[in-house]
Every structure is written in structure tokens, then in C-alpha cells.
Design a protein around this nucleic acid. Structure first.
Lengths: 329, 329
DNA sequence: CTGTTAGCGCCTTCAC
DNA sequence: GTGAAGGCGCTAACAG
């Protein structure tokens, strides 16, 4: 037989299932002597109660669903790490899944999480209005949104102030001398558009400005460098690159160095996120920090409050970005 | 009321629970007309079947437990990524948990996973003989071990050949001129000991050899540099550093550069793992590669075979390491 | 203090 | 093709 059940233990210890259940969850209600006896039997068989059954019977699952957009992206990994920091010590496990930036996938995953009766979910949505959010609401699953400001104000979120972050980047650019400014963005996402909007708002009009889209990975970034050298004459014109996420920026910087272009003398680069790798990459990156791990921790804490009903109104946490100057600009 | 149940749907569609259940799992057994009717009701209420209940009733949970030692370690993150690559498309979710190198924690987590009735677990054990492995065996949960060779040969594992990796590193060192060789290791772990053993076995006797232990994080690595400069006279003696994991090596290299020590002219560094960051860090790292993502993928695939009973005997996969030469040596 | 009795939501025989 | 009944493992009243 596969698993010993509560009945097996009960029979062998000569008590009822209820008593066994009690030593599991309310030991104080059981006489020490019998408690001892039951425990001995449990240990003898290495009995582990069936969590699934416990949950069906009404207990919380102690599982939190975490939906990120991309597993191989340091930004999300660090967010997940922050989440783990908070959740793990409290006995929660996280069901970590990736939507791979696909909205249907996100919906499917959220359905599956709801179906798994997770106690709450942390979601980094692919798009602004998502079916996933409706489902979450309909199922009354506590949740907090990460890295996006949902239009439904009843929802909690923890996100960076992307508009402001863009402005900060532009302000720094305005202090420089350069012949052109190029903005490089990846997946179309609200946060990215806001960063660009803030950037344009403040950017000095004396700069030639151009944008490259759909540069989504480190590899994409590296590949883009060759193109830029040709089409934008990187080697002739002093250039500033604003890359809206560090993950890609790192790929770009590395390739620039490989191609022998000097940073920041010939090309300056400013990134966004301040993931950990920016401090030890080829040329330590100047970037707009949104304290990635902190986002995860904050979101997890809020979710916990929601779950424990210590909080009823939504938390709208717009984290203020900060400029981190390193060597790339 | 919180969730609609199968009974609600049944009632509203004017059929029995059994029929609704069939629509869910064996649609071909239901007349198209009624099927249509039931489906309409389900959609109307955004009905999502309770996965917990389905599992209790005997279905697989489609959840895989993944136990790693450390969340903020690129090596494990990449392994997890490899696992996700394989599992996600097949509709599995992963329950990702970190033991933080603590054995009791590992045991607790594995218990919890078993208790959650995961279909299988992927485990990177903290120590050689672990209680967690016993439990896994006792519960007959399919599992494959990562990054360790269990003494119980009935267990499947995917691990790098650490002894050989150490030899490879030493062979490279032997080709160099240097006044001293320093080995830097982190958490006491079998794999690390093997790497060091292989290294010592092949290392030329002309080298002065010394070992620093318990250097466990990037920050530890950075901090160590100051010490080394003082006690080992890094600036006077040409030195080779063998760091048994890239995560730490990256921290060390970065700090060496910050301190103005030239790599590889004054200090040479060789790492281990070939995590992705080694290619874009301060000085791209020469390292012993064990194809991290591949380990995860391989382990996940094997686990799936075990779960589906396509494989009965254990898989012993000792991955051969390869030297990757970059700029640090 | 401990046993008995109902479910939790779903799936699976077994009849009709 | 479809319904009724029992059970998965556990918890929560309700009695004694």
C-alpha cells in the first residue's frame, strides 16, 4: 500500500480517527498519555498527513501562486526571491509559474492556481486588462499585482513609478553631451510605455531621438549592437542608449565591449531596474533602481495581510525609483 | 458563496454530478447535446473544477516539488529554469522551495511536498545521507537527485562529474606560471569536496597551495578580497584562484577589479559551473562548465519518465564537465 | 477527554 | 447515455 492514512494510525494506536486528527492539529485537547501513544505510531510509520485531504476538509493550503512573465529574467527572479524571503519562514510554499508574456497562458495558469485553492496569488500581469484578474476577483482569491497598476482600484499593487523613473533617466541624459539618443525597449508592456513616456517628457529637445522595439532578451540586445553600429553609426556619433530593462542592457553592454566600443566615452548606457547583476557586469551599469527584491517582499507582506484579514482596503504602493550611478554613464 | 461546485452546475444544467464530471474528464462518453448544455452553464459561472478535490479523488496533482539549496544563487536558478522549460509546457506546475542549506529545513520541506501529494520531486540535497531521501523512498514518490550522487544506487540522479571537473581546472593551472594557488570554497557539500579532491590530485607539486572555506555568497567573495590582499600579498605574488562556484567567483572578480588588481595579469581566476553571468561579468570568467540548464532539463525529463512508468530502473547521469576559456585565465 | 457522524468536491464503478 | 452511491483522507461539530 502506498500511504498510511489516519485510519491506519488510529487502528494501530487503538483510538479513533478524530483523536489522531486532534494530536495533529489541537494536541492540547488530548490526554498526554494517548497523545504519546499516537505519536509513537506515527513516527514508527513515518506518517505524513495528506495535505490535500486537509485542504479539502477546509484548511488553508498554505500555498501561494506566483505568476511571473519570464523565468530567465533576473528582474522576476529577484522579485521571486523577495517573495520567498517572506513566505518561506511562515511555512508557505510558492507555486511558481511563468506566463512567458503570453496572455492566454496567464489565464490558464491563474485558472489552475485558483483550481489548486491557493491561499493567494501574486501576479505580474502581461497586459493591463486581463481575464486573469477577473477570474481572481470572481473566485475571491486574495491577490496583489506586481509591476503594473491595475485600473480596478480595489486591487492591491506594488509597482515602481515608471513615469518618474523615465524622467529621472532623461534628466541625467540632459546633462550629457551626445549626438543622438536611442531608446531600446522589449516586450510591449504598460510599465515600459510609462518609462518611455516619462523619458520623452523630460528629454531635452536638442537630442536626436529614436526608438528600437522588441529587444527582449540579453541575446537580442547583443544582436542589436551590430545593427546599431551599422545603421546608427555608433562608432562615429557619440551616443546615449536608454535601455528600459537591465537584463537587456547587460547584453548590450557586453557586446559593445566585445566590439571594442568604449563605454562611457563613445557610448553611454543607462538601464532600468537595478537588478543585482548590474553591479558586477562588464561595465557596472548606471541604472534607475526600483529595488527589485523589495518589491517582492512588499507584495508578499501585503498579500499575507489580505489573507489574514489584517487589511481590508487595497494597498496602492507606488515605489519611487532612484538613480544609481555606476560606470556606464 | 465562494466557489461553485460540481453540484451547482449539475443542478442548473438539469443533469447529475456524474455527467458534469464526465464532461470534464471523459467528454466522449456524453451525448453532444447535453455536453453542450453543461458547458454553457460552466462558462456562464466561470466554473473551475476544484483541483484539490480531483486529486483527493485519485487524480495526479500535476505538481512537481523542486527543492534547491538557495534561491539567490544563479546556479540553482538556472537549474530551476531548465526544469520549468520541460515541465511547464506539459501542464505541470512546480512547487519551488529552498532549504537554505539547512538539513532540517530540507526534511521539513520534503515532508510538506509529500504531504501535498506532488507527483514527483527534484531534490538538490544538502548532505549525502539525508532523512529526506528516506522519506521520499518510503512514500514511493518518484524523485531524481540533482547535483549529488546518492549512495543508494536505486535512486536516479543528474550530477556533474566533480572529480573530473577539479582535474580539468588543475590541468589548466599547471600550464601557468604563478607563485601561489588558492582554493576558495563555500558551503561544505560533497560536490565541492570532490572538486577540490580532483584538483589536488592533478595539481603540480611546484605550487604553494592554500584553501579558504565558507565563502558562500557574492558578498562573502568580495569581502574576502581585502583579506587576501593583506594575508596572501595578492599585489606582490602572482596568484591563481580556483573558486569552486561561479556565483562567488563573480563577486571576487568584481572586487579585484575595483581594487585595481589586473586580471589575468596579476591574479588569475578559474570558476566552476558556467552560469550565464560568467559571460557578461566584469571580466568574463574562465570556468568549468556543467551546463546548468541542461542539468535541470535532464532531471525533469527523467522524473517525468519515472512518473509515467516509462522507466523502471534508475538513471545515473554523470555529466562530463568542459573547460570554458574566457578572459580571467 | 474521546468516539461517532457528516461532510469537503470530485471521480468511478455499477445499474438502469 | 445517464443517474445513484460509495469513497479518497481529513476535520469539525456533537455527543457521551
Amino acid at each position: 500500500m502506498k500511504h498510511k492514512t489516519i485510519s491506519d494510525i488510529a487502528r494501530e494506536a487503538g483510538v479513533s480517527k478524530a483523536t489522531v486528527s486532534r494530536v495533529l492539529t489541537h494536541p492540547e485537547l488530548v490526554k498526554p498519555a494517548t497523545q504519546e501513544r499516537v505519536k509513537r505510531v506515527m513516527e514508527k510509520h513515518e506518517y505524513v498527513p495528506n495535505h490535500i485531504a486537509q485542504s479539502l476538509a477546509g484548511n488553508p493550503t498554505k500555498m501561494i501562486g506566483v505568476v511571473i512573465d519570464e523565468l530567465s529574467n533576473f528582474f522576476f527572479i529577484e522579485v521571486a526571491e523577495g517573495i520567498g524571503n517572506i513566505l518561506s519562514p511562515l511555512g508557505y510554499s510558492m507555486l511558481l509559474v511563468s506566463s512567458r508574456w503570453i496572455e492566454e497562458e496567464e489565464t490558464r495558469l491563474v485558472k489552475s492556481l485558483i483550481s489548486s485553492q491557493v491561499d493567494g496569488v501574486l501576479l505580474a500581469p502581461v497586459a493591463k486588462e486581463s481575464r486573469a484578474l477577473q477570474l481572481l476577483k470572481a473566485s475571491q482569491t486574495p491577490c496583489v499585482i506586481i509591476n503594473q497598476i491595475p485600473s480596478d482600484t480595489s486591487l492591491s499593487f506594488v509597482a515602481g513609478d515608471d513615469l518618474e523613473g523615465g524622467r529621472i533617466a532623461a534628466a541625467l541624459v540632459n546633462e550629457q553631451e551626445a549626438e543622438q539618443v536611442i531608446v531600446i525597449t522589449g516586450f510591449a508592456h504598460q510599465s515600459v510605455e510609462d518609462r518611455v513616456a516619462g523619458f520623452k517628457e523630460v528629454l531635452d529637445s536638442r537630442f536626436l531621438y529614436k526608438r528600437y522595439r522588441f529587444v527582449e532578451t540579453q541575446a537580442d540586445g547583443a544582436a542589436l549592437v551590430t545593427t546599431l553600429i551599422r545603421t546608427e553609426e555608433l562608432e562615429q556619433k557619440k551616443t546615449i542608449l536608454f535601455v528600459t530593462n537591465d537584463n537587456v542592457a547587460i547584453g548590450i553592454v557586453n557586446e559593445l565591449v566585445e566590439q571594442g566600443i568604449s563605454i562611457p566615452e563613445q557610448v553611454m548606457v543607462i538601464g532600468y531596474d537595478n537588478i543585482r547583476a548590474t553591479s558586477f557586469c562588464r561595465i557596472p551599469l548606471t541604472t534607475v533602481s526600483q529595488s527589485t527584491i523589495h518589491i517582492g517582499e512588499q507584495a508578499a507582506k501585503t498579500l499575507l495581510q489580505l489573507i489574514n484579514k489584517e487589511r481590508t482596503e487595497a494597498l496602492h504602493n507606488l515605489i519611487q525609483p532612484v538613480l544609481i550611478r555606476r560606470h556606464s554613464l
